[in-house]
Design a binder for these strands. Structure first.
Lengths: 195, 195
DNA sequence: AGCATAATAATACAACTGTACTAAAAAAGG
DNA sequence: CCTTTTTTAGTACAGTTGTATTATTATGCT
């Protein structure tokens, strides 16, 4: 039997090449040829691991998701005090460093791609809204919130703030540093809590 | 001399066809052929008004911008009390009805398009951040703000909230009604002001 | 009417897309 | 060494893209 290759590891390499291509040229540049080039593979070789473009994009997106979830789980397992924990978790949703910036762009490009592909049938499946909600419920249960607020609306505000900050940092990375972005979110959460 | 046609009006028709195409299929669908079809024109006819695709997209984008500005100016000229005025102005930045939803999608698709086209050289030119800032300065000068806040940071928060809400409504239009979106923004501004 | 010219239509071309197919290369088992 | 099967490379095909070119239509002025 021939060369034994770790398919999963190889697929991850290709997924990372996909991220790089999207990072450079957006989803419009994510052609199978561009990705194969970036991964130093021939078309046929690429096709051997992903038989269709959709399959490849799905995989690249899932990998972003699972990596983000892993980062969050790592934060959760260390036990910080409530407010600090929530802040650290939500900071993981922002594109602070180069890596999370890439992930965010992939997530974004891909979400748009799915939105237009499925039209009215599209539903967001990343559990970000739910995560934000859980964070607020946790703060509330811990008695940290300033006063009894409408948790549903507070969730939407915080969630919107997070995605808005993410987009603004994405569009203006040099005017909008990672530290400044983090500072704004931290301050917002602090305002929600009792002094 | 031959048929005399109002070029500017015609260009606006084509721009609206462009919006429709982007609305249906995203920027990826905004090919000259798709747009020509939507506008019931041949390729040659379309080319008679816009000699290049970039020129067409630029025009379509500028039209969005000027229409949005016009809506805001109309609000500003009626003189509401400060808080209500600011709220009404900022509500114009959200995709509430079908028309503003289309404009927002075009703005968004196009901003992304420019971002990836110009790479690091890209700068956002829509004056939205400045508009938000002016709104807050106006509130502050009117003595409506709850306490002395860091206006720069408050601008970023409010601006992020607006764009976050816009995106969430765009991605989930039926779970996230225009009224609900408006309510959240209104409540946020209300929280900023003295009781 | 007839001419000048704006407006439209039709076609062509090179580049790129996703997918498919075929054949060559490479490596582990016997 | 030699077979077997994974892995890779190369090419082909049909479709779409932006742009260019050419020809045709239609209209308003003299």
């Amino acid at each position: 039997m021939p060369k034994k290759i770790d398919h999963e590891a190889r697929k991850q390499d290709i997924a990372k090449a996909t991220w790089q291509v999207i990072l450079d040229g957006g989803i419009e540049a994510a052609s199978v040829r561009n990705i194969a080039n970036e991964a130093n593979l021939s078309l046929g070789a690429l096709r051997h691991y992903f038989s269709t473009q959709e399959e490849l994009l799905d995989y690249a997106m899932e990998l972003v998701k699972s990596r983000c979830e892993a980062r969050i789980m790592q934060v959760v397992q260390q036990n910080y005090p409530p407010k600090q924990l929530v802040t650290k978790v939500l900071l993981e949703l922002l594109p602070i460093d180069r890596e999370s910036m890439a992930e965010m762009q992939v997530w974004f490009a891909f979400t748009l791609h799915l939105k237009y592909k499925h039209g009215k049938a599209f539903r967001q499946t990343d559990g970000i809204r739910e995560a934000v909600q859980r964070a607020l419920v946790f703060l509330s249960d811990s008695g940290q919130l300033k006063k009894e607020k409408d948790l549903a609306k507070e969730t939407e505000k915080l969630y919107a703030l997070i995605d808005g900050l993410a987009i603004h940092r994405f569009l203006n990375p040099e005017l909008f540093s990672g530290e400044y972005t983090a500072e704004i979110l931290t301050e917002y959460i602090d305002d929600l809590c009792k002094k």
